[in-house]
Design a protein around this nucleic acid. Structure first.
Lengths: 338, 338
DNA sequence: CAGCAAACTGTAAACGTTTTCACCATGCCC
DNA sequence: GGGCATGGTGAAAACGTTTACAGTTTGCTG
């Protein structure tokens, strides 16, 4: 591949001039402009991105860490992220971290060692351990959260998300208002702060309504279809089997509904099911899924915009940006059989 | 951030020694090894990836181009890709190209200008235009295909995929064997070679069985849920409405089934539906979906391995690597009502 | 046409590595 | 003890840009 030097030689100017042509053609004289343009054509020159990035000290990469690329909700968030990224000429680097915990230090190192300019942590199923060292860093590495909120001792990570607790309360209240009393909750896994908040909302709503939550009504479902199927089977065999099940995401709701039908029961006649996320499949499940809608794409866009701000040195603070959610009524919930 | 120079100074050795320590600690003397190790500790040093890559002339990035990150099949392929990538310390850079056509030249430029070491083209919905220029490049840029096969004039791009035609024949034959005569096909979009091949398989199987394909039985569905719903509505109103519908992917099959139920018909009693891909949702649709299973994750792994070979300068040729597929029988297909 | 500002250009340094090359010890063999 | 391989080291070049600085040309004004 030809370099800027070849172009300069062919055009009969210095490499500085070529470089200037590249960044701002107007800044060089007309005749040189044309000579350089021709030389670039002839040599088939394209700037070496590696050298540019090195020189500029930026990678042009934002790393996105997420537990599973398969999850349709994250997919939607990713779409928002990718959209802003391409507008701003940034690339996104996806890292899937099934379960392995990385400490904030390690993420910080990724930025410091110039593997990425910033990091977006999408709801991690693993507890993020706080930062130990490097108080010396003049300015903290740009790391922010999407969707997730996080244990308070982690300190001040900015995030864009909905109010998960309020949303879960709303979902639970919907079931209560339909007349359900025995409402179960299929959560994520132990480490997930994201679903923990939803669980808190569920518990709070039940409490406020004066309903008891029986042992075994809160079942972990790993946020996966299969996890939810197992959880659902357990719930259906529970001595006080629930008449409604609140699943912490839509994937699990799909697994849950399938398992209920499998058991010969009907949704919502025998058991109501409510999901969370309003993914693309929610409208075409059978029955169509009542769920909490999150503006996933918007979350992605906002998160990306904010991290780019942070990369540019703008202080984005640590006050989370809360985006709206809403309850979408479809046909998977109804009054309990009396 | 401290550089190798700081470490060298603190340790009292040259930067060359530090560099050698980093790449192979055994290659330096014991006492220096310890001094350097201590100095690295004390300075909190981590190599600057930007500088390393620049110096080495490699990006450590493989770009993956795909039409939609949302598609669960591609998601599965991505998982395979990501897995190999992380083993080999490569990063993947996702580029979503809704519809915009890029020429092979442009992809080639991305590699030549060191934005990525290689490119994987996952089934593009857009026709890839062949390469015009740059015959000068000593060796073609490593660009290979996953899933997709491509118009012959594009020449010699290696690919890993199933035999789509044979698979589609198998799916169609399954319906024929159940006794269906009026079988429709919901394809992708016009530009998609991928679904074009499936369409060819469908046509071939129908022909061989001596069944006519009525006008309007082959409907484009854009590979999306909504596209398939529209297509299905059209098919149900067709004067010779089909008793079985073959969808070019599972997403469309899900949309199709939903629309059939919407119309008050039953699957498979009134209309049989068969999908393609065997995504994670196939088993939990209602009824569970009969479909063609592709080893998506394997395709991803193999594709990534081969492109890494190509990046290393190994000639991988252009003979496609064909991986096995199979027909998975579930409950969405059955004999036609007589 | 002198003088001066403005516009443009070239030289060279810098970014942080890796790696070649020459060099210096050290230990071994004769 | 001289020669020689061996193992380790440091100086310096190189990778391809961008950019500060100084220098040169151009155009304008009086």
């Amino acid at each position: 591949m030809s370099s800027i030097k070849d172009v300069a030689e062919l055009a009969g100017v210095s490499i500085a001039t070529v470089s200037r042509y590249l960044s701002d053609p107007e800044s060089i004289r007309r005749d040189n402009r044309e000579k350089v343009a021709r030389a670039i054509q002839r040599t088939d020159y394209a700037p070496n991105a590696l050298a540019q990035n090195f020189r500029r000290g930026r990678t042009g990469i934002i790393m996105v860490v997420l537990p599973s690329v398969g999850d349709p909700f994250f997919t939607e968030v990713m779409r928002g992220i990718a959209q802003v990224a391409s507008e701003r000429h940034y690339s996104i680097l996806i890292r899937e971290t099934e379960m392995n915990t990385l400490s904030l230090d390690e993420y910080s190192d990724i930025v410091l060692s110039k593997q990425a300019d910033g990091i977006i942590l999408l709801a991690s199923t693993c507890p993020i351990t706080p930062m130990r060292r490097r108080p010396k860093a003049s300015r903290p590495a740009p790391i922010i959260l999407g969707c997730e909120n996080v244990t308070p001792d982690l300190g001040n990570l900015f995030s864009v998300r909905i109010d998960n607790r309020a949303a879960a309360r709303k979902a639970t209240r919907h079931l209560l208002e339909l007349g359900h009393e025995r409402i179960a909750f299929i959560s994520g896994s132990a480490g997930s702060e994201l679903t923990a908040d939803r669980e808190r909302g569920y518990v709070a709503a039940m409490k406020r309504a004066g309903k008891k939550i029986a042992d075994g009504w809160i079942v972990p479902g790993q946020l996966t279809i299969d996890g939810a199927r197992d959880a659902t089977r357990a719930l259906l065999q529970h001595p006080q089997a629930p008449t409604a099940i609140f699943c912490a995401n839509d994937e699990m709701a799909m697994g849950c509904i399938h398992e209920i039908k499998q058991a010969g029961l009907r949704v919502p006649d025998d058991v109501s099911v409510i999901g969370f996320d309003d993914t693309r499949y929610a409208a075409i499940t059978d029955p169509p899924l009542t769920t909490i809608a999150q503006p996933a794409e918007l979350i992605g866009q906002r998160t990306m915009l904010r991290i780019l701000d942070a990369v540019d040195g703008i202080d984005i603070g640590s006050e989370p940006e809360i985006v709206p959610h809403k309850l979408v009524l479809r046909a998977s919930t109804g009054a309990p059989a009396s």
